[in-house]
Simulated scan of single mutants.
Amino acid sequence: MKLYKIETVQYINTSVEECWDFFSSPKNLQIITPDNMSFEIQYFDGKRMYQGQIITYTLKPLLGIKISWVTEITASKENQYFIDIQRFGPYKLWHHKHFFEATEDGKTKMTDIVHYALPLGILGRLMNRLVVKTKLKAIFEYRHHKIEELFNSKL
């Protein structure tokens, strides 16, 4: 199994507590996901992120094909981090860590680290090279710009 990694860092002009308030709510994931993916939460219990929480949603990541995805929050420490993993969905493995750190100048350093693997062996590796890696990069770039708009454009 070939394992891939994406890591992004963003500095947000707000406190760790305000970041946590936004990012620990599953409903806000839709806000930072590109509209063309038709992201829709199907189920979550309405609570902030906590260990053991299950979230189900549908999206159209490629060619308008609708897929279901189930994630579980496997770890969570308020104002510091949470980890989600895919239980059911398109990846063989999806492990996403979200870290929040206060900086000396009152900002928050947000770090995302995703490890993922695709099914189908060599075909999955080819799909990653041709499509998946580029699509994931575009999603994280969209999130970066959306977060800039939501938090860093405030004066």
Rank of each mutant, 00 (worst) to 15 (best):
V70L: 12
G106F: 07
Q80A: 14
P61Y: 02
Y50S: 12
K60A: 12
E78T: 15
L123V: 13
K146H: 03
E148M: 13
M49C: 13
S24N: 10
E18N: 14
T71M: 08
L150Q: 04
S153V: 13
V131G: 10
Y43K: 14
I31R: 13
R125V: 12
I83S: 05
Y43Q: 12
F82I: 02
S153P: 09
I55A: 02
E72G: 08
I73C: 10
G46V: 01
F82P: 00
Y11V: 12
F140K: 04
F22R: 01
I32W: 06
K97L: 15
L155D: 14
E148W: 03
I54G: 07
T56A: 07
N28P: 05
F23H: 02
R48V: 15
I12N: 02
R143A: 01
A117G: 04
R87V: 12
Y57A: 04
D21V: 08
M110Y: 12
L59P: 02
N128E: 07
R143E: 01
L130R: 08
T8P: 02
N79M: 09
N36K: 15
F23W: 09
I83H: 08
Q86M: 10
S24H: 08
L59C: 06
Q86F: 04
G106M: 04
K137C: 09
C19Q: 05
F99L: 15
K154C: 12
Q51F: 09
E101F: 12
L3H: 11
P90G: 07
L136N: 03
K135R: 14
T134D: 14
A117D: 00
L59H: 10
K109H: 06
W94N: 00
N79W: 11
I67D: 02
A75R: 11
Y50H: 14
M1H: 11
G121I: 00
C19D: 00
I65H: 04
S153N: 14
H144I: 08
L120C: 09
K135N: 13
P119A: 03
I6G: 04
Q80K: 15
F82R: 04
K109C: 09
I41E: 00
Y4V: 03
K77M: 15
K154E: 12
D45I: 05
F151Y: 04
I31H: 13
T33C: 07
G106N: 02
S76R: 09
L123N: 03
F39H: 03
